[in-house]
């Protein structure tokens, strides 16, 4: 009985509140009857932060959604409460951080959104057979980076890659708006390589900067 669940015609599942043992909507954060914090619901990252599921996430609304939710759920709010409430608050805060970190970063957001919409982003290294062009581009860029021997030269390569990264974001926005999942998946793969390459530029720049 305690694990009772039912699906409403027009809404989500009903589960049992662990504290007052009455009914609570499956996606509630707090029990409407007794106010006890509930374990995190099985909802997507956008819903968790009260955002519409789109690639064009506005940084300010993301921050606002995240801060508002953390204000209510962070373990600091439950420091004097019972161990169970503290544990649920920690689980809630973990889910919020996971959602925030995923949606904040354009690459992770794209990756997540493709999966959420039922598409598939090829894992690293798997798609190269179909991505000859990308493979060539990556290899050429790597060679250029290996040959760059001044901070300025690395900075120029990094800037070019960052511009390309920015263009990917713009293209992704269009692809998602048109629901063109294969294009979105392709762009996401390209962005992953560019992101890695920018990282490599950064560490090479730091190394060069240290020795001069």
């Amino acid at each position: 009985m305690n694990e009772a669940e039912a699906t409403a015609a027009g809404g989500g599942a009903i589960s049992t509140c662990w504290s007052c043992r009455g009914p609570v909507a499956g996606d509630s954060i707090f029990c409407a009857t007794c106010g006890a914090v509930q374990p995190p619901a099985d909802v997507d990252h956008f819903a968790r932060l009260d955002l519409t599921p789109t690639f064009d996430v506005d940084a300010d609304s993301l921050d606002r959604g995240y801060f508002d939710a953390q204000r209510r759920l962070h373990p600091d709010r439950f420091a004097t409460r019972t161990p169970r409430e503290r544990a649920f608050s920690q689980l809630q805060a973990v889910s919020l951080n996971e959602a925030y970190e995923t949606l904040k970063d354009p690459l992770r957001r794209a990756d997540y959104l493709v999966t959420l919409k039922g598409g598939e982003v090829a894992p690293e290294g798997c798609s190269l057979v179909n991505e000859q062009e990308l493979l060539h581009e990556v290899m050429e860029r790597r060679e250029e980076l290996a040959e760059a021997d001044s901070v300025a030269a690395v900075e120029a390569l990094e800037a070019a890659a960052s511009d390309d990264f920015g263009r990917c974001i713009a293209a992704l926005s269009t692809a998602f708006a048109c629901d063109d999942l294969p294009a979105a998946a392709r762009l996401t793969t390209r962005m992953r390589y560019l992101g890695k390459y920018i990282e490599e530029c950064r560490s090479r720049r730091t190394r060069l900067g240290r020795h001069t």
Binding site: T7, A8, P23, A25, S28, A32, G35, A36, E85
Partner: peptide
Amino acid sequence: RMDRGIREALRGRGVDELAPASPPEA
């Protein structure tokens, strides 16, 4: 209480409409 909650949910009325949500007090 659970029985009623499930019956009402099946009728399409959300549990949260039964009472206002309240955050916990420190």
